[in-house]
Simulated assay, not measured.
Amino acid sequence: MTETTKTAPALTGERADLLEQLAKSRFFLRFTANELTDRQAGHRSTVSGLTVGGLIKHVASVEKTWVDFILEGPSAMPDFSAMTEADFAARENDFRLLPGETLEGVLAAYAEVAARTDELVATLPDLDAAQPLPKAPWFDQDAKWSARRVLMHIVAETSQHAGHADIVREAIDGTKSMG
């Protein structure tokens, strides 16, 4: 008896474009960590508190939360309008490697998040499905975002932080992602 395996058809169009841009943005972010030690990945090399490892950790966390939002709606996110200064200060831990965290672990967690997102992009029945945004001072009241809009936001967030990581990495040892 022979088993046959059905292969899913290759994605085309918008979904393929989203996956390609996500992959490119993720590549540049991960590339900034290439050959860094855990110490270097957690090193603040500029006046900001940003580190290469912390930026990767943050992007993974944000991507996971936004994918949860696509699937579960605003309950997947906190009510930002009710957060205190202490809550926001605690969120700063998203941007740094904490004791016991390693670059390898952060990259592995990011790979898991990315795989989940990619699977969602490939299989979500409707990219137009929208959810109301959580309460936050930076969102318009009663605004909704479609899954498509959220995915574009993930691409933008990843690209922006890849640029931050590139600057942080260059200040560590002169290595650049591009140029």
Rank of each mutant, 00 (worst) to 15 (best):
E157V: 08
M178G: 02
A165K: 08
T175F: 15
V155M: 05
Q160V: 10
A171W: 12
H164S: 06
H164G: 07
V168D: 09
V150C: 01
K144Y: 03
W145R: 10
S146H: 07
G174T: 07
V155Y: 02
G163M: 14
K144N: 06
E157Y: 11
E170W: 07
Q160A: 09
D166L: 07
G163K: 10
A143C: 04
V168N: 00
A143G: 08
G174W: 05
A165S: 05
A165L: 12
S159I: 07
H153Q: 12
T158D: 05
A156C: 15
V155R: 03
Q160K: 11
H164F: 12
D166A: 14
R169I: 07
M152F: 13
R149D: 10
A156Q: 14
I167D: 03
R148N: 08
H153Y: 08
M178N: 08
H161K: 06
M178I: 03
V155W: 05
M152G: 11
A156G: 14
A171N: 15
L151N: 00
R169D: 02
H153I: 07
S159N: 10
T175A: 14
K176W: 11
S177T: 11
R149E: 15
M152N: 09
K144V: 02
H161I: 00
L151W: 00
T158R: 03
I172T: 05
A165C: 12
A171M: 12
D173I: 10
